[in-house]
Structures are given as C-alpha cells and as structure tokens.
Amino acid sequence: MIRDITIGQYYPADSVIHRLDPRTKLFGTMIFLISLFLADSIWAYVLATAVLAAAIRISKVPFSFMVRGLKAIVILLLISVSFNLFLTDGETLVKLGFLRITKEGLYTAAFMAVRLIYLVLGSSLMTLTTTPNELTDGLEKGLGFLKRFGLPIHEVSMMMSIALRFIPILIEETDKIMKAQMARGADFESGNLIQKAKAMVPLLVPLFISAFRRATDLAMAMEARCYRGGEGRTKMKPLKYKSRDRISYLLFFLYIGIIIAMRVML
C-alpha cells in the first residue's frame, strides 16, 4: 500500500534525463504541467502525449514502473471523471434514469482524466530520474533568489531532503513494529473502523517514539559535524548547467510556444 507511492522513489538508470541538471528537470516538469492546463484542443494533447512518450522513452524507466504511481489517484480519477460526466449541462447523449451524459460532459471528463494522468506521469518521471538529494539541491539553487525576501530557502530544502530521506526508513520501521505486534497477536486487518483505529495505537506510539529518537540523534550528529545552517556553506558538487541543459531549455520554450500558439489559433 505505502510502497505503491512512486513519488520520491528513484529509479537508477543511465540516461540523458538522469544526467540533466535538476533545475532543468524541475523547470521542464513545471512547463509540462502548465501546458496541460493551457491545452484545450485534441492536437495540443496529441503533442503533449508525444512529448511525454518521448521523455519516458529517453529516460529508460520501464513504463510499468511509471504506472505504479497512478494507483494512488485511481479514486480521485473516478470521482472527478464521474462528476464531470454526469453533472455537465449541454446536449444530451444518453439518459439513464435521472443520470444523463452530455456531449460536453464526455469531453470535459475525457480531458480531465487525461490531464490528471499526465500530471502524475509527468511529475513521477521527474522524481524517478532525480535522486531526492539532487531534487532539493535543484530547489535550493533554483529558488535561491527568494532568500533576498528573507525566506529561509536552505533550511526549508534541508528539511525537505531529510523528510524524503526518512520515508524509506520509517516505512521499514513501520513494517518491523507491525510484525513485532503481530507476533504478540495484534490484528491490523479485521474489525470495523473503530476497532481498526484502536489497533493502530500499538503501532503508532512506538513509531512516533522512534521518529523522535531518530530526530534527536540526527540533530546531534549534524551539530557534531558543525552544521549551522546555510550561511557560508559550500557544496561538494555545485550545480552547473551544461550544453544538454541549454538545449533542453530551448526545447521547453519551443514546446510551450507551440502549445500557446495552438490555444490562440485553433
């Protein structure tokens, strides 16, 4: 269940996309997400599909791996599709009792579904090809200009990378405690909602305690290595744009340009 979340899971492979600067990938993903909301014609979606398919192909991440991220949004997808399908006014196509499907409803539902799926695929492509460390480095540098407005960018990105770093550890810890309590006869599966919620107590209390213990240990270890925030801190691998990044930026602008042109002209 928890393991199905592909966001924050890195798939190691050797591809151009893996080697891109994280800032480029962040920007590219953002462009792609914006383009999905700008696209309003079938041709624009064809273009978006082609771009996404090409990117997935180049990334060498198996498609089956990408689709796993979709499991998490199945319910959201079903709800939004059925709302759009049944509750849009317009030309009636089919009538089932009090439910009716309109032509406009069918269109919006289809666009909505494609949009949601592409949103998830696009962003998981980024997280699958970028290690959490690169990602936060990219965010820190890419948003560095906000420091001038007094925002603690370094601290926020450090917190983010620590949080990401601890996801697998906490999953493992949950698994361990769950098993330990199951060995003592605990039952996490059967029973009604209230019984299930009560059954979580023997899991959550030890989990919280261990999370706090790990947090104090980590803070101690960081202080022991003289960590004192972002000021004057240098990077072991400073981010630097290469020619592949410049080409990518060019492609991004070209792509968003075409999408905008399509919106204006079609």
């Binding site: 361990k176 060995a183 261990s210």
Partner: peptide, 28 residues
C-alpha cells in the same frame, strides 16, 4: 500459531507502547 511460537524481535523494547509495564505485558 503465533501464540505457540513466540518471537522476540531485535531491539524488542521498540515495540513497547502502553502507559505502564503491566498493561504492556498484558497486550499479548
């Protein structure tokens, strides 16, 4: 089976959760 074959995990103290020692032992 799990009450016939008791398993004590590594660092079993990480599974303690109750407010007092006695009720924790009563959990099983």
């Amino acid at each position: 089976l799990r009450s016939k074959v008791g398993l004590v995990f590594q660092y079993p103290e990480h599974q303690l959760f109750e407010v007092d020692v006695f009720s924790d032992v009563c959990f099983g």
